[in-house]
């Protein structure tokens, strides 16, 4: 319950403040979001499997987001930013899919 409240609070704050994303951060925002979605679905699956751990969730969320942004940053500096972005999106996308599939199997037993 508290998780849903937190999520809603974030959405409300975002809409209320409408903060400007600084220009240097803009390329990393989408990739950070994909990474954090991965962490969120990982946490959801862990919770459904009964192994959820608060500390693991928080640490994986923060590190996932930062590492994904860092990879893109390094790629940008090396001139392969878009390729690395694609790579990160593919890997995280597959992870999200498998996690969602596991959640679906657990919820609907199908």
């Amino acid at each position: 319950m508290i998780a849903v409240i937190g999520l809603l609070a974030g959405v409300v704050i975002g809409f209320a403040l409408q903060p400007d994303v600084p220009l240097w951060l803009q390329p990393y925002l989408p990739i950070a979001i994909v990474a954090s979605l991965d962490a969120m679905f990982g946490g959801l699956r862990a919770r459904l499997e009964g192994v959820f751990d608060e500390k693991v969730f928080v640490v994986s969320f923060v590190s996932n987001t930062i590492v994904a942004a860092l990879i893109v940053f390094v790629g940008d500096r090396l001139g392969v930013g878009s390729q690395l972005t694609t790579g990160v999106v593919v890997v995280l996308g597959i992870r999200i899919f498998t996690n969602l599939a596991a959640i679906r199997r657990r919820l609907f037993r199908a």
Binding site: I2, G6, L7, G10, V11, I13, L29, M40, D53, K55
Partner: peptide
């Protein structure tokens, strides 16, 4: 298992914020 304390709420709040901002 420890779960669903305040830190989780904070992190999810952050996620919601990120999504909305994007």
């Amino acid at each position: 298992a420890r779960h669903l304390g305040l830190p989780v709420a904070v992190v999810l709040c952050l996620l919601g914020l990120l999504l909305t901002v994007a």
